[in-house]
Design a protein around this nucleic acid. Structure first.
Length: 1001
RNA sequence: GGGCGUUUAGCUCAGUUGGCUAGAGUACUACAUUGACAUUGUAGGGGUCACUGGUUCAAAUCCAGUAACGCCCACCA
């Protein structure tokens, strides 16, 4: 006696149970020694800054569907999990935490080692949380291989890559403007700045043009001045040019001339640069201060001859070498610089103006653009035999080695790489992979020092270099040069490091690498590269990368580049870009807006399977998808749509329209009123998945209730009754279509296919039909076999549900399937993906479709006349002998599903006098409505139907009367139209006859 | 400013290479209730396919333009 199932599916119990079971069985542990073509996915490592959000849920669901599906297909699968150290974001989070604990927290005083240790603590906590959430979502990762971008394995790959690139001349040190916090004396990332409108000034000055005089000068000839405006007068000390637009007629004659910078006496040129100067703005002339303004800096890179001059000390005072201004704070310097211009009569005007000024988030002081040493990777083409890195990555895609899905994203990738901009890889942080380069910071003084540096150390270095332990530029005695850089292959190589640091000649660079540097190595660092591991040999290159489009450039392009450079092979064959989630108003979901959705709320409310189904169903090929968010009232459970004005924590309290009680809208913010209950968040998009899970649950429940005496036996398909052949064929078609959908990353279609097959065809029709065949052994076998197939097909999307039902089915019918039953696998995770193409049989489809049409017609009449279901109807169907034979074979189902008392089929069937009817090309069905019929209403309906058909016929006749249609359209289409017209004309005839008798009453 | 995308039922979205009366889910309406399932069943109503023009025998679909919205990148003396 099979187990009786509860009435509804309880996702929570199932989730806990199967996570444990799968883990114990080790289904997701990859073994390179096992057979099967490899299928590998590396997870886009989530940042260890916090919890997983809905975007992760989407991303990971896509990956898990692919991995579970491929595993069932017999691939040797590996889904590599892990997390990202996310340099800036993580360090900022931890620093904010420390600042909250102690208002006087200062990074420098706290110290590098202590801070890094603190961040590790944070990492351990949140990594565990993230991995836990990943498990809860059902992710079939191989958690035994979990990596972290800052762990020892990944660090090795980082060191090796940096060393090679340094050695090969791709990595170089250069200057770049950074956001400088003069109070904390540190650079800050763009993320750590905010812009605030500040009262400032807009000054206009003039510089004297050398050797020119005004055209309208008096006899003596007065000097010619050129005017420009600025909001930061103090930077005039660092001016190295004035700039005008090349096509600006006012200044044509001055391009190439020079002016005097009055404070410094420097002679600086007037240059033309179309990108910097805008003739429409101000005077059309602009000063150029490359060291203190990003645009001017860019201008300098285009005109390097003008030079670049830094005027600031790290504390924001004016640097030495600027006379009376040196040592002044930048604000005092500004006043002094302006005063000087007034004194010289070269001050024209000052207007008060509100200026958007960048501030440091940490110290709340204005940011200074500050020139500093940075590390870069050169992307450009090279003169030597070595490849240009950008080109390597471009070729990987243009050659088709890497394919994008949807294709259009290849353009994003190629456009960005085409610029071949160098990649700045250094970050002024402590959390990350520290740059393994030592710089010579002093020259030898004493004889002893000289002997050491130029003698013993240099000799040792040459030796180490030949051993590949260090890399540096060759020359007779490089150590005699001023700045000298040594890249150390292994920072733990104490021979080298101790030797360099002895006497303090060398200091290690304090910067760390951009977090994307280690992320770029992820597809092979996780597999153990540079070691030649079994994993690397088996699972690289990986198969598919699933990610979002905003990191195509930051991440995808760089992985390809690094894979090609380090291993000479692309890191993945396919890149699937999934859509981005938006809220109900088309705005990107984000923490600051508070319009996000917590996957854990969704899981709790609807279950993991429902969440996964929702994610799959939503993943179409568009680039954005909307997910309207609702608050669930914590008192009564009412669902209240989130409105735009609730965002950004603008609404701190909401009243439930149903129970009138107050609550706090759900969101990422901490509560400021512990009394006020916080709403969970929901979205009705997940109800479909929950309902679907329940539908499958109950279908299984029904089948198991009717399985008494089940025996497995081979099924001879051709000998099966129509309805059995039909459902088997439909299952086969569905399986085939799902395979194709998944191969093309059409997750929404895959979800729709299994949903429609299960709900509409299997539950609404086949199971209903099976009720007329109680305990028919063949029917039992088909029910069991189709359910088995459904569970396999749905497993990648809804694994917990599938596994739960699989276990029940296993108990009741271990041996199952068709055409030849076999003992099923112990878990649906390792069951074979259905490949039933041989069972696809189109010929039965038409008969069942006709039968469905007939039943639907009867139901429609029943509804129209409000005939209650219990009342049996008399059915007469006028049709060809062939169709009559089909209907006769299916008669039990027609009788059952239509609620029929007697049914007559055939060409000579005589319809009752008082009848309601349905007419189509294959049959005319009539139901006896004696005593019920409303002749006038029925006549009116018939008239409308005739009119509708006439309209169609008219449109088609129009086409057929059009010579160019008959001439140009495909002949088979024309023939089809003609046939259709004839068909419809026939229907009109029947309907008119009916109308006549209706009118006659 | 540059690039990419979107606009189809009240809402969220399908609609393949142009070709029968444009579909689904949800919401809505009516009816149904101890027989797997109300997280249900049966049936029904609901669309100027953003707008303008063009190509074509034929346009939701192809082309051009307009508008609104979204995302990415660049930039704002």
């Amino acid at each position: 006696m099979p187990t009786e199932l509860p009435k509804t599916y309880e996702p929570k119990d199932a989730q806990a149970k199967w996570l444990k079971f799968w883990d114990e069985k080790g289904y997701f542990r990859a073994d390179p020694a096992k057979p099967g073509d490899p299928y590998t996915i590396v997870i886009p490592p989530p940042n260890v800054t916090g919890a997983l959000h809905m975007g992760h849920a989407l991303n990971n669901t896509m990956q898990d569907i692919l991995v579970r599906w491929r595993r069932m297909q017999g691939f040797n699968t590996l889904w590599m999990p892990g997390t990202d150290h996310a340099g800036i974001a993580t360090q900022a989070v931890v620093e904010r935490l420390l600042l909250a604990e102690d208002k006087n927290f200062k990074r420098r005083e706290y110290g590098r080692e202590a801070l890094v240790a603190k961040i590790w603590e944070w990492k351990d906590k949140y990594e565990a949380r993230i991995l836990g959430q990943l498990r809860e979502m059902g992710a079939s990762c191989d958690f035994s291989r979990t990596r972290f971008t800052l762990d020892a394995t990944c660090a090795k790959a980082v060191r090796e890559t940096f060393f090679r690139m340094f050695r090969d001349g791709y990595i170089y040190r250069g200057k770049r403007l950074v956001n400088w916090d003069t109070q904390l004396q540190t650079s800050v990332s763009d993320d750590e700045t905010y812009t605030e409108t500040t009262k400032g000034g807009f000054w206009t000055f003039q510089y004297e043009v050398i050797g020119e005089s005004t055209p309208t000068a008096d006899a003596a000839g007065s000097p010619l001045f050129i005017q420009f405006s600025t909001t930061r007068p103090e930077t005039m000390l660092g001016d190295t040019a004035l700039c005008v637009h090349p096509s600006d007629e006012r200044y044509q004659h001055l391009i190439g001339k020079s002016v005097t910078q009055p404070h410094t006496g420097r002679i600086i040129p007037i240059i033309a640069d179309g990108q910097l100067a805008d003739p429409e703005l101000g005077t059309g002339c602009v000063k150029v201060t490359p060291a203190h303004d990003p645009n001017d800096y860019a201008c300098w890179t285009r005109h390097p001859e003008i030079g670049i001059i830094n005027i600031l000390n790290p504390d924001g005072t004016i640097a030495a070498g600027f006379g009376e201004y040196s040592g002044l704070d930048r604000t005092k310097a500004r006043a002094a610089v302006v005063a000087k211009m007034e004194e010289l009569g070269q001050f024209i005007d000052k207007q008060d103006r509100d200026i958007p000024l960048p501030y440091s988030d940490r110290s709340k002081t204005p940011i200074e653009p500050f020139l500093s040493d940075q590390w870069f990777i050169s992307m450009a083409d090279r003169d030597d035999s070595k490849p240009g890195l950008a080109q390597l990555a471009i070729d990987a895609v243009t050659s088709g080695k890497v394919k994008f899905f949807p294709e259009r994203y290849a353009k994003t990738y190629l456009d960005w790489l085409g610029e071949k901009r160098d990649w700045c890889i250094s970050r002024q942080l402590w959390w990350g992979h520290r740059i393994p380069v030592w710089t010579k910071v002093k020259t030898a003084q004493s004889d002893e020092e000289k002997a050491w540096l130029h003698g013993s150390l240099f000799e040792a270095m040459q030796e180490w270099k030949s051993q590949g332990r260090v890399s540096y530029r060759d020359s007779a005695d490089p150590f005699s040069e001023g700045q000298f850089l040594v890249c150390v292959q292994d920072e733990a190589d104490s021979d080298v490091v101790d030797a360099m640091e002895k006497y303090g000649f060398f200091e290690r660079d304090s910067d760390v690498l951009d977090t994307w540097f280690s992320s770029a190595l992820w597809p092979f660092s996780t597999l153990g590269w540079p070691e030649q591991t079994a994993d690397l040999a088996r699972y690289y290159p990986t198969s598919t990368l699933c990610t979002s489009r905003d990191i195509i450039t930051l991440w995808v392009a760089r992985m390809v580049l690094m894979g090609e450079y380090n291993l000479g092979e692309v890191p993945f064959r396919q890149v699937y870009i999934h859509p981005a989630l938006q809220d109900g108003f088309g705005e990107r979901m984000s923490k600051t807006k508070g319009n996000g959705l917590d996957p854990l709320d969704i899981i709790e409310l609807y279950g993991t399977d429902a969440m996964r189904y929702g994610m799959a169903a939503i993943a179409t090929e568009t680039q954005d998808i909307r997910l309207p968010v609702m608050n669930v009232c914590p008192h009564c459970g009412a669902q209240i749509p989130v409105k735009q004005e609730h965002m950004y924590m603008r609404t701190k309290k909401l009243a439930c329209p149903q129970c009138k009680q107050n609550f706090r809208p759900g969101g990422p913010w901490p509560s400021d009123d512990p009394e006020l209950k916080t709403a969970k968040q929901a979205s009705d998009r997940f109800e479909v998945g929950r309902n679907f899970a329940n539908k499958m649950w109950n279908a299984t429940r029904f089948i198991l209730m009717n399985l008494d005496g089940y025996t497995p036996a081979p099924l001879v398909i051709v000998e099966l009754p129509t309805e059995d052949r039909w459902i088997v064929s439909r299952l086969a078609t569905t399986a085939s279509a799902m395979t194709a959908a998944l191969e093309n990353f059409k997750f929404a279609e895959a979800a729709r296919l299994i949903y429609e097959f299960t709900w509409t065809e299997f539950c609404d029709w086949y199971i209903e039909m099976s009720k007329a065949r109680r305990s028919d052994p063949t029917c039992q076998r088909v029910l069991v076999g189709v359910l088995d197939g459904i569970l396999r097909l749905v497993h990648p999307i809804m694994p917990f549900l599938a596994e739960t039902l699989w276990e029940y089915l296993h108990e009741a019918a271990t041996v199952r399937g068709f055409p030849t039953p076999a003992e099923a696998e112990e878990s649906v995770c390792i069951a074979r993906w259905p490949e039933l193409d041989a069972l696809i049989d189109d010929s039965t489809e038409t008969s069942i479709a006709r039968m469905q049409e007939l039943v639907r017609g009867v139901r429609e009449i029943r509804n129209r006349y409000q005939v209650e279901d219990k009342a049996k109807l008399e059915l007469v169907v006028k049709c060809s002998a062939d169709v009559a034979a089909e209907f006769t074979a299916l008669q039990p189902f027609i009788v059952q599903l239509g609620g029929i008392s007697t049914a007559t089929f055939g060409p000579d069937a005589v319809k009752p006098k008082q009848a309601g009817g349905v007419v189509n090309e294959a049959f005319e069905a009539s139901v006896n409505l004696e005593g019920l019929i409303d002749f006038a209403a029925e006549a009116k309906r018939t008239e409308k139907q005739i009119a509708d058909i006439r309209k169609q016929v008219g449109a088609m006749q129009g086409k057929l009367n059009n010579d160019s249609y008959v001439k140009n359209a495909p002949p088979e289409l024309v023939a089809e139209t003609k046939a259709k017209v004839a068909e419809l004309e026939k229907q009109i005839g029947t309907l008119q006859a009916n109308l006549k008798s209706l009118l006659a009453g």
